[in-house]
């Protein structure tokens, strides 16, 4: 099990780099008023939700960076299904923790549009991202100008990666400085649920692309880390309790999905380790439908206005 107890030291906090976009890419939340309700440009410290940074950090370091996800989506040559994404025009209606969750969703939609080279759509989502980011004091980091810089470097993936890395670091540092870990947790949730949603829709529409099931399997592997993020204060906060309930439903629906089929064939030669996994998970239309139901419930809970 992912959280098997061990005599272990927590890795140190400093030094970690990429929470932002990452966080940006994988998070979510709900609509209760909270200490993270912030006015434009004036983020408030989280005091109501005592989410330890160490928990958030484990997730942030475990999840893939958006650059990796985008590369992977491009390799898989996935289609762009705009109708399945969130409505970018609603961004002005969100605030507080729900806004943070929707920021995670919009960031994921933006990354997906960008990865599939639908730049006009990506800009639409960028506008939503920028609008919400302003509520958390992140608009200078996630500004239109800065993302344009990225676009100008599309043919230079190394440069894009370096810049994104810098953005990640800046976002993480900003959120740490301003004590907004509950906001970060909700962003993570939004990104995670939207990634799972997109993977399910893509697989539903392209049953032959079973490689996409790997992404669903990956989200399943990450789920225990998110559950842990919400379990920490679920007894004292109804928002966390509600989300945790949804997460348990998703966990139950994902139970039959193999995280990995069988141990890989491992070869080590001159310091190079190669792991060949025999067969990836396969999902039938019925299984996709079963998983989609609780995923849609949580997603709806997050995006409802």
């Amino acid at each position: 099990m992912v959280f098997a107890a061990k005599v272990a030291r927590r890795p140190s906090l400093n030094g970690w780099v990429s929470k932002v976009f990452l966080s940006l890419i994988w998070l979510s939340g709900c609509s209760s008023p909270s200490s993270t309700d912030a006015t434009e440009g004036q983020p408030k410290r989280d005091t109501t939700y005592a989410v330890p940074w160490e928990l958030v950090e484990v997730y942030m370091k475990a999840a893939p960076s958006p650059v990796q996800v985008a590369l992977w989506l491009r390799q898989e040559k996935v289609p762009f299904i705009r109708g399945s994404l969130h409505d970018p025009t609603l961004s002005g209606r969100y605030g507080g923790l729900q806004g943070a969750a929707n920021l995670g969703i919009y960031l994921t939609d933006m990354a997906y549009a960008h990865a599939t080279q639908n730049y006009q759509d990506a800009y639409e989502y960028l506008s939503s991202v920028n609008r919400l980011a302003a509520r958390y004091g992140l608009d200078d980091i996630l500004s239109v100008e800065r993302i344009r810089t990225l676009d100008n470097l599309q043919d230079q993936p190394d440069s894009v990666q370096k810049i994104l890395t810098q953005y990640y670091r800046e976002v993480q540092e900003r959120l740490e400085e301003t004590g907004q870990q509950a906001m970060l947790r909700h962003m993570i949730l939004g990104g995670w649920i939207e990634s799972l949603h997109i993977a399910l829709v893509l697989l539903e529409n392209n049953p032959s692309k079973q490689h996409l099931a790997q992404m669903i399997s990956l989200q399943k592997s990450l789920l225990p880390l998110i559950v842990k993020l919400y379990a920490v204060d679920s007894t004292s906060h109804s928002t966390s309790r509600q989300i945790l309930g949804h997460l348990y439903e998703i966990e139950s629906a994902l139970r039959d999905i193999q995280t990995e089929a069988s141990p890989p064939v491992t070869q080590v030669n001159k310091g190079v380790i190669q792991m060949q996994f025999r067969e990836g998970p396969r999902l039938s239309p019925e299984q996709i439908s079963t998983i989609k139901q609780p995923v849609q419930k949580l997603r709806q809970h997050v995006i409802q206005v």
């Binding site: 061990k6 272990a8 890795p11 140190s12 970690w16 780099v17 990429s18 960076s65 990666q161 990640y168």
Partner: peptide, 17 residues
Amino acid sequence: DGRYWRAELYGGETTEI
């Protein structure tokens, strides 16, 4: 990407990543 993990390990401790 700048990410790293660092820990002080005593008496057979391990750190998980």
